[in-house]
Amino acid sequence: MSTETTVCTIGAYHRPATLDDALRILRDVPGARPVAGGTDLLVHVRDGREGAPPALVSLRRVPELCGVTIEDGAVTIGALTTMSDIVADAELARLLPAVHVAAADFGGVQIRNAATIGGNLVNASPCANLPPALLVHGASVVLRALGGVRTVDLRDFIVGPGETCLRDGEVLAAVTIPRPLGGLRSTFRRTVRVAMDMALVSVAAAVAMDGGTIGAVRVAAGAVAPTPRRLAEVEELLRGAVPDEGLLRRAGELAAAGVAPISDVRASESYRRHMTGVHVRRALAELTAGGVDGDA
């Protein structure tokens, strides 16, 4: 008898080889939980934060959920794609710089080798790295159930801290990103206490310049509201404007005013608000002029 394991209250561990098999188990075993990298769920079950499900369904060996495909610039990332896979993909780095940076600046290498894009989205943590980066690239999620498939805009997928619009029996299968506009640049920035940390504040931005003015623009922030979110007012301000110092400063101020952070053990509400503004301004400076306001 092993002496170091937890008292087991998880009844079974399934390792289906196809997505349909996985979906069938999820239908047949009420309360069964799909796991991808498993990085958070196992810890939460052990420390009692989450109840033990009657069964776990490991998606690790489901081939339909793995791999990245790029067709004519449109990207589909399988839900089981790890952070390391994303970081290592040079074409992704070129097309989706913010996603590349957010995946690279994610935990340590051990975590990046296990954590998946699907897991990061389904956890719906307010401070997750990937959502802001994916939001500025207009990502959607593909949800599969036995009965069919639906595609949901990422903005509508995460509905609250730890809550998504996934229905029982449904699995996040892939993330799709439309072909980026020509000349679109994106970036991701965050505040941490030490290198190995979750974001206290994160900001992603994507800009396509139209001559001397800002053409398309998306700005998103994480850890400063119950869900990662686009900053529509900021985008509104920027669209079609000339990116001078004053504009970027106003964008930062508007961003800081527009978020709803909390105070906790990691940072205060006011610091998060302040840093949202700093990151938005610096991100835009980086994207519009190659760093008029660059930092270290």
Binding site: M1, S2, T3, E4, T5, T6, V7, C8
Partner: peptide, 9 residues
């Protein structure tokens, strides 16, 4: 207890 998990429980 006979193992750590039982003791914790």
């Amino acid at each position: 207890a006979v193992d750590a998990a039982t003791a914790a429980a």
